[in-house]
């Protein structure tokens, strides 16, 4: 009997195994944490050096409109006004989201409320495929189809905010749609039944009951789509024209934070102001991505309370 007692009070192979396994799993998660922290730290410290090391006033960076980091103006100030890119990024993002939202609502409503069967069979694969197409392919099609078309229809070079908007519209559409579908699906069945039982038409039910109940979900989906649009680099860069100028209208060549980054980072020398200024743009991207993240969290919590 003592043998059994002994057995029970000694650490078994299994319990050593468990400690080892737990440690391995923990190390893996720690690696990911470390990666995120290093990204945040390195991009932040690089991005801030424009202000700390090169003494560029923060207000100048965000309000001035001339971007020519390798030159100085008459007073010896660096020409690092990032406003054109900031305006460019926000314009394409907001316009693309505005354009995509009605289509996303219609597609999601169609798939969940009007014709779930056909939606499942035809639209589900359509959405999955649209998500799967790589962004450079969108860029290529933008370059060979959207830009010439814009040029013919509206004049100008064809490169600009409008073309960028069109390309991003197609790219964020599936993101917004698939997220909104999930949110529509979570609206309880009896909401619809109650409404229909009261004699409301299908559209009245959809617009007054279903869509209203899923507003937080829709907002989250749109913010997600915007986050994707804001961070998208190559597809936009290929069609926007890459002129670091404040856009006059939707047709004039412009640039975004990402487009300037992708074209510029290889042509500057580490540690110099032109390079640091680009890292500041990357920092803005990072901060915006965090803000979008916070925003979806905030909407989620608010919506959850209802």
């Amino acid at each position: 009997m003592d043998q059994i007692k002994n057995e029970l009070t000694h650490k078994s192979k299994a319990s050593k195994q468990d400690v080892r396994g737990r440690t391995i799993a923990f190390i893996c998660i720690a690696v990911i944490m470390l990666v995120v922290l290093s990204i945040l730290f390195m991009i932040t410290s690089r991005g801030l050096s424009t202000f700390i090391q090169d003494k560029v006033p923060v207000s100048d960076f965000f309000t001035k409109t001339v971007w020519n980091p390798s030159a100085v103006d008459a007073n010896g100030h660096y020409l690092v006004g990032a406003l054109p890119m900031i305006v460019g990024s926000f314009s394409v993002t907001i316009l693309a989201a505005l354009l995509a939202t009605p289509f996303a609502i219609a597609t999601a409503v169609f798939m969940t409320e009007i014709s779930p069967k056909r939606g499942q069979r035809i639209l589900q694969p359509v959405i999955e495929l649209l998500v799967g197409i790589p962004s450079v392919v969108y860029g290529f099609i933008g370059l060979t189809v959207v830009v010439p078309l814009t040029r013919q229809l509206f004049g100008g070079t064809g490169f600009g905010i409008l073309s960028g908007t069109f390309v991003l519209f197609v790219m964020v559409l599936p993101t917004i749609t698939s997220m909104y579908i999930d949110s529509l699906k979570s609206v309880p069945r009896f909401y619809r039944e109650a409404s229909l039982a009261l004699g409301a038409t299908r559209w009245q039910t959809i617009s007054r009951v279903v869509i209203r109940a899923s507003v937080p979900g829709l907002l989250t989906a749109i913010v997600f789509g915007m986050a994707r649009a804001f961070g998208e680099a190559l597809a936009v860069q290929m069609v926007i024209g890459n002129a670091a100028l404040l856009p006059h209208n939707l047709l004039s060549p412009a640039s975004t934070l990402t487009s300037v980054l992708t074209t510029g980072i290889g042509n500057t020398v580490m540690g110099t102001l032109p390079n640091n200024a680009l890292w500041t743009l990357a920092l803005i991207l990072l901060v915006m991505s965090l803000l979008f993240n916070l925003l979806t969290r905030y909407i989620g919590r608010k919506g959850g309370l209802k």
Partner: peptide, 26 residues
């Protein structure tokens, strides 16, 4: 931890690429 992972997943890929550039290439 979950929030951190979500942050990583929502970072623009160009930012992730630039970080890789900074750390490994440079």
């Amino acid at each position: 931890v979950r929030i951190t992972i979500e942050v990583l997943s929502s970072l623009p890929s160009v930012v992730v690429g630039l970080f890789g550039f900074l750390l490994f290439v440079v």
